[in-house]
Design a protein around this nucleic acid. Structure first.
Length: 295
DNA sequence: AAGAACTCCTGTTGGC
DNA sequence: TGCCAACAGGAGTTCT
């Protein structure tokens, strides 16, 4: 589900409630998500005050008073639901229309006392949680080897060209590779490649350097990646199926999609007579316009 | 060793 | 209407 803009939207929803609050109790409805939950998870989190809530790529990082970091990834269908203090716990059941979710997939509950309650719900359970010392976070297994933050200062035509130089892998795969740039997913890669006029199957190396200088497309793509992500964050992310804000409201960037999930529809570019096509690359759907993104 | 394929899991959707 | 295959926003592991 969530790519960088959705995770940032969740972070902004949680931050005002979570930061400064103390976790009175951590309720674990199962012992694993995608991976086993950390050893003594409930004991290490309960009683701790949350000092900050940050984001790295598609990960959320809660800094605890103990000096440990709580690392959270939403996978495909992970959601956090905020509830006011004293809200009744939902009765177990497959689907609760009033709760707007399958309550049976409420896996982890943060009881925050007077600050309320935060519930982590994850239908497909591809999300996970882990803990690591805050001081050694960058070297922890999730972040060591992770690529640059696309909205940070590092991403530029120069760095992108250097990363992709000599790569035979398709642009689509290279942009999804979290070891190169971390935070992009299927939707925003499709949209960025469309805006840049680059076919998803082109070898990543085509935008790299020539005669020691980045090709113009490298600068275009770097700028477009920032633009797409920034616009999506401003729109509160994209809601296709599962994504919802912590208060249950929905993102609306999906209305701005030019190609994603629009196979068969007419290309939006004025004067372009092509239709959006879908192709499968390493098991994932790519959407593109053959007229605007020549092979 | 890079690149592609397969895997985890459950729910929804579209075609017959 | 019902059944079932295809598909879904991620990413670690295993193949070629």
């Amino acid at each position: 589900m969530p790519e960088l803009p959705e995770v940032e939207t969740v972070r902004r929803g949680l931050e005002p409630v979570l930061v400064g609050a103390r976790v009175e109790r951590l309720v674990l409805n199962r012992k694993d998500l995608r991976f086993a939950l950390p050893d003594r998870f409930a004991e290490r989190v309960a009683g701790q005050q949350v000092k900050s809530l940050s984001r790295r790529a598609k990960y959320l990082i809660a800094e605890l008073g103990s000096g440990e970091a709580l690392i959270m990834h939403l996978g495909m269908t992970g959601r956090f639901i905020l509830e006011v203090p004293g809200a009744p716990v939902q009765e177990p059941g497959v689907f609760h229309a009033d709760a707007g979710r399958h309550v049976i997939h409420d896996h982890v509950v943060f009881e925050l006392g007077s600050a309320g309650r935060i519930t982590y719900n994850d239908v497909r359970r591809f999300g996970f949680m882990d803990m690591a010392p805050m001081a050694a976070l960058a070297a922890s297994k999730h972040f060591a080897g992770m690529g640059m933050e696309p909205l940070g200062n590092e991403l530029s035509g120069e760095t992108l060209a250097a990363l992709f130089a000599g790569k035979a892998a398709p642009l689509k795969a290279a942009l999804l590779d979290q070891r190169l740039i971390a935070g992009l997913g299927n939707i925003y890669v499709c949209e960025a490649l469309f805006r840049a006029g680059l076919h998803p199957r082109l070898p990543a190396g085509v935008i790299a350097t020539r005669n020691g200088r980045p090709r113009p497309k490298a600068h275009d793509l770097a700028r477009i990646i920032r633009d797409v992500l920034t616009e999506a964050i401003a729109a509160g992310g994209s809601t296709l199926r599962d994504f919802a804000h912590t208060d249950g409201s929905l993102g609306y960037f999906q209305h701005a999609f030019k190609v994603y999930d629009r196979a068969g529809e007419a290309c939006v570019t004025p004067g372009c007579n092509h239709r959006v096509q879908r192709l499968v690359q390493s098991g994932r759907s790519s959407f593109f316009c053959a007229g605007c993104q020549p092979d």
